[in-house]
């Protein structure tokens, strides 16, 4: 559920706060010292971490369903591709411009859509993703359709480009950590409490004066901004995007990550993105020859086991351990 490490007011051991940074540092070091391929996998994980951290505002903190957040990733990705290619914008400016567009679209689409609840909201948002997918295929003059968009410039600032995937990896991890930092600040505030109250009981939230519709919309727009950044980062990191990149598979994968890491927690989305990205790679390199073909099965088995034994996500492991320890102390 909610890690006491995040909510507790006690000044808890400093190492808990430093742990994510140390872990991130170790990952960067790992990425930098291994092959470019591993660096690419870790880069993907960081990008998905950004996407899921945003989605967590809407699905975790606020408890609403969105099956269409890939639409905003597509907006970001194509925004970055088109703005750098056609208008020659700097990647950073293209990312910011795409974010603004995604934010405005989320506002306009979210205002009527968020009146729906539960399954209806899920269906409406799902449609949003499908519509965006169709547009990216059909509007060939703008998006190159199925062919996709290639030759997107890598991340950089003021004309200085991050030349290889290892330099980009550092940038991606820093951005992902910044995303989590924002998420943590917002969560533990009047704003974040209002979102979480809506997840708990809309009736009670409204009875305390919380404008439920407005806060839902705010969470939806924030999720869209994160998704747009993730889409842009993907475009600049890989240099190529196509409609498939932002297809329904993205929705399924992000849900897996969200639940794996711990939905509603601050670090869960990033942790989930990392684990879900790394498991297949670890399996590929460690499974003995005969089992290699079955690695998808092993992957799914691991996911199911984690969801059965750690239903609140991997980032809840710490608090589980703590709960057990304090239970022992009290008992």
């Amino acid at each position: 559920m909610i890690s006491p490490a995040i909510t507790s007011t006690r000044p808890r051991a400093a190492w808990t706060a430093a742990l994510p940074v140390i872990a991130a540092g170790a990952l960067i070091a790992y990425g930098l010292t291994s092959s470019g391929y591993i660096a690419t996998v870790l880069g993907f994980a960081a990008i998905y971490g950004v996407f899921c951290t945003g989605l967590n505002f809407f699905m975790g903190y606020t408890g609403q369903a969105s099956f269409g957040q890939n639409a905003f990733a597509a907006l970001g990705g194509y925004g970055s591709a088109i703005l750098t290619d056609r208008l020659g914008l700097e990647p950073v400016l293209a990312i910011l411009a795409s974010m603004s567009i995604a934010g405005i679209v989320a506002l306009v689409v979210g205002y009527p859509t968020l009146r729906l609840r539960g399954h209806y909201l899920a269906m409406a948002t799902f449609a949003l993703g499908l519509i965006t997918y169709e547009i990216t295929i059909e509007w060939t003059s703008l998006t190159h359709g199925y062919m996709g968009y290639s030759g997107i410039p890598p991340l950089g600032l003021f004309g200085y480009e991050l030349a290889n995937e290892k330099q980009q990896l550092v940038a991606l991890v820093v951005i992902a950590l910044f995303g989590v930092w924002i998420s943590n600040r917002l969560r533990n505030s009047r704003f974040g409490r209002a979102l979480r109250a809506i997840a708990g009981s809309e009736a009670a939230a409204a009875a305390l004066g919380i404008n439920v519709a407005r806060y839902k919309l705010a969470a939806f727009v924030i999720a869209a901004l994160y998704a747009s950044v993730a889409g842009s980062l993907f475009a600049h990191f890989i240099g190529f995007i196509s409609p498939e990149v932002f297809g329904t598979a993205m929705v399924v994968l992000s849900f897996t990550m969200l639940y794996l890491g711990g939905i509603g927690t601050t670090w869960g989305p990033l942790v989930g993105a990392l684990i879900a990205s790394l498991i297949p790679e670890v399996l590929r390199s460690t499974l003995p020859g005969g089992l290699k073909e079955g690695q998808d099965i092993v992957y799914c088995a691991i996911l199911i086991l984690i969801l059965i034994f750690v239903p609140k996500g991997l980032s809840s492991l710490g608090s589980l351990w703590q709960a057990r320890r304090s239970a022992v102390r009290e008992g």
């Binding site: 109250a197 708990g200 009981s201 009736a203 009670a204 009875a207």
Partner: peptide, 13 residues
């Protein structure tokens, strides 16, 4: 401000 007959707490908090 009102309360509800069936308690409406924010369970995950």
């Amino acid at each position: 401000i009102r309360t509800y007959q069936l308690v409406q707490l924010f369970k995950d908090m």
